[in-house]
Each structure stands twice: as structure tokens, then as C-alpha cells.
């Protein structure tokens, strides 16, 4: 059974309503279309779609359950990926770069007395950087959606991008309460920043941001692959 353009659109709309994320939508849309193309018995389009969803997935409700289970798995997988990248900086051979970075930052903060203003500017910037980075990726994602939507390919938010958002926002959520609830500790840190604290803080922030960027790069690679393929099509 070959789908007409109208049937294809109907199927996209139908699955779009049930499946909210790119990972599950793409996979199940392909499954249903491929199953339809292999159908030899002539029944109506609606009945055929209903039969496939019932036979292969156990019905409409199971599609949502399937998405929920896949989301849980993708979140676990993304967090694991982030932790692997982050802890990777403390394992050989990257450990050498990390140690070199620590030594350089420590030497710099120890011998070139940072002004209070510099510390107060750098540290919040490092806290906010992962979140800012996420906003940039979000803008890029939005521009991408706008451009590609015209080609008839339905792009949806990805589970993994949501996890990146959460990881990007985490430092802000961790340090924000200090501003309000622990002012004395917070202020003492800012007024007399010890080189060890500054070094630890800056290095952790840099490695955190680098791990996040690597994680995003993994997602962007698979997305670029789709862009190129869609463009060719």
C-alpha cells in the first residue's frame, strides 16, 4: 500500500498529537509507514493504521507508554554521557591537560592578584555560561526548525536537548540560593577569594562547560546528518 500525500500528512498529524519527542516520533512514523508499504490486503487507510498500532504496539495508549519509557532511558543515557565526559578529564591522558590547567590558573591567581571586580565578574559569568550556551543552542534549534519545516519533515524537541537544558541550568540553581540564604559566607568568599577556591571554582566550571558542549556536539552531529540527508532529498 503506497501512501498518498494527503494520507502521509494525516498520519504525521495523528502521530504528532500522540508523540511529543523527536526520537520516538521519527522511529514510530517510519515503522508505521514501512508497515503500511508492506501491507498487501486492501483495507482503508484509517483501518490499516489502526491495525498496525494495535498489532505492533498494543494500541494508542501503549504508544504514550513507549514514549515515556524511551524518555526515561534517554535521560539516563544523556546524564551518563555527561558524567563520562566530565570524569574523563580526571583520567589519563586528559588528566595531564586538567593538571596543566589547574597549575596555570593557580599560578595566575596567586601571582597576579585578581581584583575583586575581576573575580566578581568571572565567577558569575562561569556559573551562567552553561545556561547561556543552552540558550544559544535553543536559538540555533529554533532557526533550524523554521528552515527545515518547509521541507515537510516534522522536527520535534529531542529528549536529549531537554536534559542539556537541565544540566545547563543546574549551576545557576546551585549557586543562586547562596545569594539569598547564605550572604555572609557568600560575601566573605567574594571579598577575599583564596587562589585555591578560585582555581577549583574556575576549573570545575570550565570542565563542566566543556562536557556540556561535547554532549551537545553529539546531538548536533546526528542532527546535521539529518539536515544533509533532507537537503539531498
Amino acid at each position: 500500500m503506497k501512501l498518498t500525500e494527503q494520507e502521509g500528512e494525516l498520519l504525521k498529524q495523528y502521530l504528532s498529537k500522540i508523540l511529543k519527542y523527536r526520537e520516538t516520533y521519527d522511529e514510530l512514523y517510519d515503522h508505521v509507514v514501512t508497515a503500511l508499504s508492506h501491507k498487501t490486503t486492501i483495507t482503508s487507510f484509517e483501518q490499516s493504521v489502526y491495525d498496525i498500532i494495535t498489532d505492533d504496539f498494543g494500541g494508542y495508549d501503549n504508544l504514550m507508554k513507549l514514549e515515556k519509557a524511551s524518555k526515561k532511558m534517554a535521560i539516563k543515557d544523556t546524564i551518563k554521557g555527561f558524567l563520562i565526559y566530565f570524569t574523563g578529564y580526571f583520567k589519563f591522558p586528559k588528566l595531564l591537560y586538567t593538571v596543566a590547567g589547574i597549575v596555570m590558573v593557580y599560578y595566575f591567581t596567586l601571582h597576579f592578584q585578581l581584583t575583586l571586580w575581576t573575580v566578581q565578574a568571572i565567577c558569575p559569568a562561569m556559573i551562567c555560561f552553561p545556561q547561556l550556551y543552552y540558550f544559544v543552542t535553543l536559538i540555533k534549534e529554533f532557526a533550524f526548525l523554521q528552515k527545515r519545516d518547509k521541507k515537510g519533515y516534522v522536527f520535534k524537541p529531542a529528549f536529549k536537548l531537554n536534559v542539556i537544558a537541565a544540566i545547563g541550568t543546574l549551576p545557576v540553581w546551585i549557586f543562586l540560593p547562596f545569594t539569598y540564604w547564605l550572604p555572609p559566607i557568600y560575601l566573605s568568599f567574594w571579598h577575599s577569594p583564596h587562589p585555591v577556591f578560585v582555581t577549583s571554582f574556575l576549573m570545575t566550571s570550565v570542565l563542566y562547560a566543556l562536557s556540556l558542549m561535547k554532549l551537545y556536539r553529539d546531538i548536533a552531529i546526528s542532527r546535521t546528518h539529518i539536515i544533509l540527508a533532507v537537503d539531498k532529498f
Partner: peptide, 22 residues
């Protein structure tokens, strides 16, 4: 998806007849 998360499988996406196939 579980096998993929556990690192036993890896995935690639290709466009087949205008749709993404994993």
C-alpha cells in the same frame, strides 16, 4: 533503547523516502 543506553548498540539515522530511519 535499553540496549542502546547500556552501550550494546549504536545508532545512525538515515533519510529513506523523506523520513528519518534509525
Amino acid at each position: 533503547h535499553k540496549l542502546e543506553a547500556d552501550g550494546f548498540l549504536e545508532t545512525t539515522v538515515e533519510i529513506v523516502d523523506g523520513r528519518a530511519r534509525k
